[in-house]
Design a binder for these strands. Structure first.
Lengths: 227, 227
DNA sequence: TTTTTAACAATAGTAATACTATAGTGTTTC
DNA sequence: GAAACACTATAGTATTACTATTGTTAAAAA
């Protein structure tokens, strides 16, 4: 599978960046080290200056790629959702049963990362940690509406729509397919976060990867079951 | 009910503040106007300087009550969860059927605010908007573990434990009562947020208050139903 | 009543932050 | 050979979160 992915590039919507970081070596350095540094410091303490220092350049260079720290975060998150969507499409083609496809989708949302599915300069495991801890900050802003109009959240919406469609295939009468999908997607994040940091809020045991998937799968299939 | 509440004070854990804002007029002014200002500007643009200006004082005064902006947010959120817990206990005493109590709990988590249940200087409706939009930022930090050790999240955990206990009463074999409760609590927040700002991610129609409650109630009861 | 204490106001200051501006270097492109 | 471009280097701005100090007032303790 690796050689197949060598020819694949996860594309992020054009108006998220000023200059495509995938198009140059410096750009890829920025992405790669931004992921490492945000994971290490947290979004609040992460600055363009520190990132510039780390890759031996100056803030000005990074600002040529991304308008702001916020947009860099939006970029990383969009990349992540596009990556999940790619994996979902790949894993569900030629599978007839929508129940089976839904199971796969929930597995992907639960954060199962197969290590052979990696891209050169992006550490997917670390990126996932960032998405868990920081993605909510991308939309919990006074600028949501403006950002939404600019299309910054299209990747997320596209993935959710796709999974919602599977649910509607299984259970056309279920009234809340979109809410269910976004609930599962978000739940997956903070259940992982709670398992690590606030364990009394969850029954998911850190490390036992399948518990989260089990919890969410159970939740979804019971919710949409037709009587 | 109002005159009953006149004698009730929602108490926030002592180590969340430096000086109890409920103990002085200035303190109550700080809380009241902080709620208004955070709602208006969003947490990022909200500053102690602006708040001080609004209530005709200086930053120094506010810093005597709260160590930092972060702690003020923690205070507001703790107050909110304590308020929900109070309402939950009040609304479920003397109700025998755990199913009925659980229904009430989900209603409260869904954000049903009865207007007659208000405290003098705290606008619960606005506070709820703040909790929806900003509460995740209180724990999505590099300091979670330290903050958690200090007991900053006890209110939230206490409320969740209480509801989790009801679930266990109904369905002692269900494996994920804590995860289910925190999922519902968090889901309630961003489903409301999505309904307002990213409507394609939800089927909840803004304004139709019962939809959210319906969605969550359906989700929970189906999940814990024993076969 | 005097003394002490506390709450607050007023002012100033610090290091860091997010970002902008500008000038210059080296490499590629027409 | 000139223009365009990517990047570096340096400097600067307004604002931020927060600290420190000093002075005023008003109430509590002696």
């Amino acid at each position: 599978m690796r050689h197949l992915l060598a020819n694949i590039k996860i594309k992020v919507d054009e108006n998220v960046y000023l200059k495509d970081p995938e198009s140059t070596e410096k750009g890829r350095q920025i992405i790669q080290n931004a992921i490492l540094l945000i994971d290490e410091l947290g979004l609040e303490s992460f600055t363009f200056r520190k990132l510039a220092e780390k890759i031996g350049t100056t803030e000005a260079t990074i600002y040529r790629y991304f308008e702001s720290k916020h947009m860099l975060l939006v970029y990383l998150i969009s990349w992540y959702w596009n990556w999940l969507e790619y994996r979902l499409v790949f894993a569900t083609t030629n599978i007839a049963a929508p129940e089976h496809r839904l199971r796969i989708a929930i597995g992907i949302l639960s954060g199962k990362v197969e290590d052979d599915m990696d891209f050169a300069h992006i550490s997917e495991v670390i990126l996932q940690r960032i998405v868990v801890a920081e993605s909510a900050k991308a939309y919990l802003t006074k600028d949501v509406d403006a950002d939404n109009k600019e299309g910054f959240f299209l990747s997320y919406k596209r993935l959710c729509r796709r999974i919602s469609a599977i649910i509607q295939e299984i259970s056309p009468t279920y009234k809340y397919p979109d809410s269910l999908v976004s609930t599962v997607a978000e739940s997956a994040h903070y259940q992982l976060f709670f398992a690590q940091h606030l364990p009394s809020l969850t029954n998911i045991d850190n490390g036992q990867n399948n518990q989260l998937q089990d919890f969410l799968t159970d939740l979804v299939f019971k919710a949409i079951e037709e009587k």
